[in-house]
């Protein structure tokens, strides 16, 4: 029953170029269309689940997604049970239908990796593109600044 994520994305800040393409492709991946232009013209354009950290006058940038922690505080803090671990992949997934937007997960996530959705109704978090197979942020990073690592020793 001990379940952990099988994959995790690690950012490489030395080569993150702050282009935000990870966010752009994340939006596409969760937009329900396959066309970027369409996705961006949608009124209910999803918010990105990856966050590019940047700071004025400072050259380091990096992109951060949910770490899919081994000891996930967000699941423990969730008041509805919406936040859960997927049994097949070990990814931490939020069931947006069940989320009521109390943001307890945001209060406890030590990575600040959980965001409110654009409409403020539910949590928007990285699902490692569970339906697509591979995370689009990793695949589309032009400088390979995101590395998807397969994790071993899964119980």
């Amino acid at each position: 029953m001990e379940l952990k994520t099988k994959k995790r994305i690690y950012p490489k800040e030395d080569v993150c170029i702050g282009c935000h393409l990870c966010e752009i492709y994340c939006i596409l991946a969760h937009s329900g269309t396959r066309d970027l232009i369409k996705a961006f013209k949608k009124l209910d354009k999803p918010s990105p689940r990856v966050l590019v950290e940047e700071k004025d006058g400072y050259y380091i940038t990096f992109a951060l997604q949910c770490r899919h922690c081994d000891d996930p505080l967000c699941i423990k803090a969730c008041i509805t049970g919406a936040m859960h671990r997927d049994e097949n992949t070990g990814y931490i997934i939020c069931d947006e239908e069940r989320c009521v937007g109390c943001w307890s997960c945001i209060l406890v996530c030590p990575y600040g990796a959980i965001r409110r959705s654009e409409d403020g109704k539910a949590v928007s978090k990285c699902d490692l593109c569970i339906e697509k197979g591979n995370p689009v942020c990793v695949e589309n990073c032009p400088n390979e600044a995101l590395e998807l690592k397969e994790l071993e020793d899964l119980a």
Binding site: G18, H20, F40, K41
Partner: peptide
């Protein structure tokens, strides 16, 4: 203009 999605990647990259 039809293709531009205002993602500002060009703005950031130039």
């Amino acid at each position: 203009e039809i293709r531009c999605i205002r993602c500002k990647v060009c703005v950031r990259q130039c």
